[in-house]
Design a protein around this nucleic acid. Structure first.
Lengths: 345, 345
DNA sequence: TCAGGTACTACAAACGTTTGCAGTCGAACT
DNA sequence: AGTTCGACTGCAAACGTTTGTAGTACCTGA
């Protein structure tokens, strides 16, 4: 209304420095106490609608934005959450990060993303560094031991993704089911000898996949050869190509898509054709899987849903930790062109 | 030493809730004033080495961690920086994010990552939401107008990546040089008619590439046909494949790798062989470029270096904005298998 | 011996919020 | 008329730090 409002008798739009307009400034110009201004934002039902409208208008006019640090200091809640992943550049993570971030933002939370470079040592360091700064942390595919995670969870609420930890909320993908589907797909195509290209040592997913693959290969009367552990990288897929051919298997289930595309590449270099001579199946259905040639048959894991679910769990039991809530998300098999009938030997 | 230290006469390790050990607790047990404890951490040279050692020991023993919110409140510096990108899942960004994050962490800064979903509208919203929470923001490939960015920069220090904005610090890649190298590469292979598959409308990189490509095609006595604007996605690469063939060009320079791999895919579907019939060159050298078949000839942009440089710029002129510092990073041409000699028509 | 300095430490006021408590005022009920 | 209540608002004490100022004790040099 009319003239723009000035603070402290002087306009605050000083050169360079941004305008540090506080709750007090708003209180002054709207002629109420700071507590009323505060309540206008944090407990609107406690203030007279007319007053509130006035305060809001002045606040808007001054460009007031609540200072989250101050709010955090007194409430103890920062409205931030931490997200720790092994490697942002691993195509498995971006969809998860993206989903978590936008889901959190919808609930007025911001997300710190940190990358451990696949180093278990820096995981702990990061958790501690973030602890005071966030209301909770999403630990994705951690390589730490259960007891170590347990201990950290006393400092800050944790939700673990891609691995169950007793006593902690976690969200996992049903990769065992996925592996089952993959194995059944392969055996139904006539494969009697299947190889499993295993992932990293500490990985729960890896154990699950192996357990399930072993079980269902046997159930189909086929043979399973397990290779590993391996780093879950494209390079290690390439490196293991020769070993794979030597197993005599006609089909391979890989720990993840990255290794699968590496393996396909490696096999091609050896003159082995996929899927004509060897079928290859991945896990995760990352953006890669549609880009390879042949396109990759793979177990789709709902990474975006996992990100959202993890955020929800974190925000729900904000305080009452020590839950044994475990969310398991379903997986499905996406059949593309890297798997085909077993060749006649 | 000996017995573990208790606070307030009672051990603070209450059930569930984490231990909120403050500077005051440390002061109490070590028999000094809080200010001494504070200085032990923030200005060590002002406190007696013996005292400091004692304080540090007790702090360690109690598991004291400074509360960054409180520190931020009084110093006005949060030791956080914001990083806004268009799409985390776009393979261009993860290396940049990763580099920025680890570089920042090395300087005791944490990074908020936010994703605009390619929506210019949410860019502004995100900047404002983050403003009070960070000491500055890295704006990557923004789609906003210069004036809009200018305005936001009055609220919070900004560093722009992938686009120069007058009066603001920015780091850009010399894509003009990259485009020149690509065009010269193609013309030297005998291509007399080249197509440019353009990117999104607001993109500075897009304009640079076009400008440079036009210039150097002409300089080589060749013809350039420009298509666009297009969304910088794989799908739009696929969609434009037919249009490309209709230009009659024997080589294509694409706005980025994503479009290039899409284009290769699209051309293949049309029965056009790359590079035998049409050569394709991308920009960015993302992780994709080694995975395509054929592998992609592309202009490598130093994304990780850009991330680090941006962080440095932000941390340097923390206060004195209004700099016209512009860092330009060199690009280079990586020749792989998607480009070859012009076919004999 | 004393002025001046150095090295360290304590005091207390901030920073921008939230929130329990108390107060005011008018309306409704007895 | 007096009581009770509800709706609203002001007061002031926190939250965990940092930092300018002031103080103490000791040392140095004249």
């Amino acid at each position: 209304m009319g003239a723009t409002v000035c603070i402290n008798g002087t306009t605050k739009a000083r050169k360079g420095r941004p305008v540090p307009v506080t709750i007090r400034d708003v209180a002054k110009v709207s002629g109420v106490h700071v507590s009323t201004v505060s309540r206008t934002f944090s407990a609107p039902h406690l203030v007279n609608p007319a007053t509130r409208a006035r305060v809001l208008e002045y606040a808007e006019q001054l460009g007031y934005r609540p200072n989250r640090a101050a709010r955090a200091l007194i409430t103890g809640r920062t409205h931030n959450i931490g997200l720790i992943v092994a490697d942002i550049a691993n195509p498995f993570f971006p969809p998860l990060i993206k989903a978590a971030e936008s889901h959190a933002r919808g609930r007025d939370y911001h997300v710190f993303v940190a990358d451990t470079n696949e180093d278990p040592g820096v995981e702990e360091e990061l958790v501690l560094a973030l602890a005071k700064q966030v209301d909770g942390i999403l630990l994705c595919s951690p390589r730490m031991s259960n007891t170590q995670i347990e201990k950290l969870s006393r400092d800050v609420p944790l939700v673990v993704v891609n691995r169950p930890v007793p006593g902690l909320p976690a969200v996992v993908m049903d990769v065992a089911q996925g592996a089952r589907l993959a194995i059944e797909h392969l055996t139904s195509l006539g494969h009697r000898h299947i190889a499993l290209l295993g992932g990293p040592r500490g990985s729960w997913n890896n154990r699950e996949i192996r357990r399930s693959a072993t079980l269902y290969t046997r159930a189909a009367g086929s043979e399973l050869t397990v290779l590993g552990p391996n780093l879950p990288t494209e390079d290690s897929g390439i490196a293991q190509a020769e070993a794979i051919t030597q197993t005599g298997a006609t089909a391979v289930l890989c720990y993840n898509d990255l290794m699968a595309v590496g393996l396909i590449d490696g096999l091609e270099r050896l003159g082995v054709s996929v899927p004509d001579q060897i079928s290859v199946v991945g896990v995760d259905d990352t953006s890669l899987s549609r880009r390879t040639r042949p396109t990759l048959t793979t177990v789709a894991t709902p990474t975006a849903a996992a990100g959202r679910a993890a955020v929800d769990m974190l925000l729900q039991h904000g305080d009452d930790r020590r839950t044994n809530a475990l969310v398991t998300l379903q997986t499905e098999l996406i059949i593309r062109n890297s798997s085909g009938p077993a060749r006649r030997q």
